[in-house]
Amino acid sequence: MGTLSLSEYEDVSIWVPWGHISGRWYGNRKERPILAIHGYTDNLGTFDRLIPLLPDYLGVLCIDLPGHGCSSGLPPGIQYTFVEWSYVINRIMRQFKWSKVSLMGHSMGGVMGFLHTCLAPHTVDFIITIEAVLNPVGRVKDLSAYAFNIDKFVEEVERSSSSTIYEANSHTLQHFCDFLNVYTFESVPTDRAQHLLNRVMHRSQLYPDKFYLLRDNRTKFVNDFVMTPELGTEMARRIRNKPYLIIKGSDSHYITDNDYQVITILRDQNPQFEFHEVPGKHHVHLSNAEDCAKYIIPFLRQHRPPPKKEETKHRL
């Protein structure tokens, strides 16, 4: 058996009341795929380096969350919430009539998987999370940060009606790659940044040698869903005997002491729980996809094994 090809996929558009959720379905289209969900302000390009390492007997459906990548933004004036993004898992399951879901998520996408698995464990057959347990946005203690987000959200709604705003902020591709590297505290290497830029970067009509980013900036100003340590531990207790893989970047601080309390509960009551640390920062699946795959591939082969030869013949 080989591996998935990044160039061989089917574009997917999933209806939602405000528009559509955009996705790419790689590999096997005859069976239910793994649902892959990106992190906060990223898009499905976050999995570009991991996809070609995964076994090709599987399918992987990578999506852009609402307001991210090529997916529709929420109606004007509506604020994004963590819970609304989490509803996407249920919406996609209903769209494809899945009774179960296999989840893989980075950062916020991993937290969404944790939340969904806690609320509906009977619908999840396994979960893979990269650099995520509890919601880091919900740890903010400084009320001034909430006030800032409210003010910036209203400001963004007022200015978003003008497309010239984006054209005026046109820059070279190298500028955006460098900016993303700095913005993520060097978590996204400059030479990997284009994976996250491809779905939001557009060539300027005013400055043909430059580009601008077209995305819903409301996604940057979210005040929602505080996951306290007490709530986190209670959520973890609801997840038993569920194949669960967590990968942490060794140089990242997104997984904290509060997360380790949850991890301890998951490990103690779950013989199918795995936790591994690999060299890298928060976007370790982009910077060091190979080491992540060393743990993800055996996990997949164990919990979504390849079809037996006789099963394959029967399908043909």
Rank of each mutant, 00 (worst) to 15 (best):
I128M: 14
I128W: 07
I128V: 02
T129L: 05
I130L: 14
I130V: 12
E131L: 11
E131D: 04
E131G: 04
E131Y: 13
A132M: 09
A132N: 09
V133R: 05
V133A: 06
L134I: 04
L134N: 15
L134Y: 08
N135Y: 02
P136L: 06
P136W: 04
P136V: 07
V137T: 02
V137F: 03
V137D: 03
V137W: 13
G138H: 10
G138R: 10
R139S: 11
R139D: 05
R139A: 05
R139P: 07
R139L: 03
V140S: 04
K141Q: 11
K141F: 14
D142W: 14
D142T: 08
D142M: 03
L143N: 12
S144K: 07
A145C: 09
Y146H: 10
Y146W: 11
Y146R: 09
Y146V: 08
F148Q: 13
F148C: 00
N149A: 01
N149D: 04
N149G: 05
N149Q: 03
I150G: 10
K152I: 10
F153K: 11
F153L: 14
F153P: 09
V154E: 12
V154N: 13
E155I: 06
E155L: 13
E156Q: 07
V157S: 14
V157N: 08
E158M: 06
E158A: 09
R159S: 09
R159E: 08
S160L: 08
S161Q: 11
S161N: 09
S161T: 05
S161W: 12
S161A: 14
S162M: 12
S162W: 06
S162C: 08
S162D: 06
S163H: 14
T164I: 11
T164M: 15
T164Q: 13
T164W: 11
I165A: 08
I165T: 15
I165L: 07
I165Y: 15
I165E: 15
Y166E: 14
Y166R: 15
Y166S: 11
E167G: 08
E167Y: 02
A168G: 05
A168C: 12
A168F: 04
A168Y: 05
N169E: 05
N169R: 07
N169L: 07
N169P: 01
N169H: 04
T172A: 00
T172C: 01
T172Y: 02
T172H: 01
T172W: 00
L173W: 00
L173N: 01
Q174I: 00
C177M: 11
C177V: 01
D178R: 11
D178K: 02
D178N: 06
L180T: 03
L180C: 01
N181W: 06
N181Y: 06
N181G: 12
V182R: 10
V182K: 13
V182S: 08
Y183R: 14
Y183D: 15
Y183A: 13
T184F: 10
T184K: 06
F185S: 10
E186S: 06
S187P: 11
S187A: 08
S187W: 15
V188I: 15
V188F: 14
P189G: 13
